Simulated scan of single mutants.
Amino acid sequence: MLAATPEDRSGGDDTNCSSKLTAGFKDSHLPGRDTGSEDNVTNYTGIEPCLSTKRDKGEKGERGPQGKHGKEGPIGIQGPMGLKGDRGQAGIPGDSYKQHYSAFSVGRKKGLHSSDYYQTLVFDTTFVNLHGHFNMFKGKFYCYIPGIYYFNLNIHTWNFKETYLHIMKNDQDMVICYAQPSDRSIMQSQSIMLELQENDEVWVRLYKRERENAVYSDDVDIYVTFNGYLIKPNLD
């Protein structure tokens, strides 16, 4: 039998492979295909088939178009915490902040009858007088911190006498606290918010008309109070 050489197994020229295949079958008959004597089988020359011829690698083709985005996958597990970063730079210094307060609460133990057409209501008891902004001798609050203030006046009327007072800002009457003469004495109250500038004055004035004007109090209890405090300072 004709055996294939190593060149035949490793692949070579197509012509050599074809010629060796032809040589193997020359003057021979394939078994089972030809009729004749057993010599036909005996004279068969077997040839191992040639392996495929190895081709050279071609050039790389152009990149194809990008495909569509796929569906978004599930969120992954949170990773470990990173290292602590460096300390940042100090910021620009801000404006200094100063809190502003102003408040007072005063009372009067003695009753008062108006002896003149205009009379300032003065007080003899101090509950609160922050920074001394309320002048007890003059009965006036002096504004040292411009802003919005709240004021409240409480008085007790006198039987059969008229009660007629104003909360004043400088020389202007702002609100009235009034009660007609009656056989019953009652508590009256008035309040207001005012925007004040520095050196403004707030005080209580009694006003006398043809009838006697009075407020009631005694040495045991305090019936007359005047209060005020700063709500919002004007820092502009």
Rank of each mutant, 00 (worst) to 15 (best):
I186A: 05
T126A: 13
S102G: 13
E210T: 09
S52L: 01
H69V: 12
A214T: 03
G94R: 05
E162C: 10
I222W: 01
D236F: 04
G70N: 08
Q172I: 04
H113G: 09
F160K: 14
R63A: 05
T126R: 14
N135Q: 10
N40W: 02
R87V: 14
T157R: 00
I77P: 01
F134M: 10
F127Q: 09
P146I: 05
S115W: 02
N16K: 01
N213G: 10
V220W: 03
T157S: 07
L235A: 07
D183L: 05
V175R: 14
D173W: 06
F151Y: 12
D13R: 01
R209D: 15
Y229H: 15
Y150S: 12
S105D: 12
I148A: 07
N227E: 06
K57M: 14
G91D: 14
G82C: 10
A3D: 12
V215K: 00
N154E: 06
L206F: 14
K109N: 06
H131C: 08
M136Y: 09
G88M: 14
M136D: 07
A90F: 07
L196W: 11
G73F: 11
Y149C: 07
I92Q: 09
F25K: 04
S28R: 13
C177V: 09
E59W: 08
T5V: 00
K60R: 02
D86I: 08
Q172E: 14
Q197F: 12
E210N: 10
L30M: 02
E59Q: 07
K98S: 06
K169D: 11
A214W: 03
Y150G: 10
P181R: 00
A3V: 11
Y149E: 10
G139W: 11
F104H: 08
T120V: 15
Y229F: 15
G76R: 08
G61L: 04
V215A: 03
A103D: 03
N159C: 04
R63Q: 07
Y101H: 11
N213H: 07
C17Y: 00
L230D: 06
E62M: 10
Q99P: 13
G88S: 13
I92M: 10
T163Y: 04
P233F: 02
D218E: 08
D34R: 03
Y144I: 10
Q190R: 12
R9I: 02
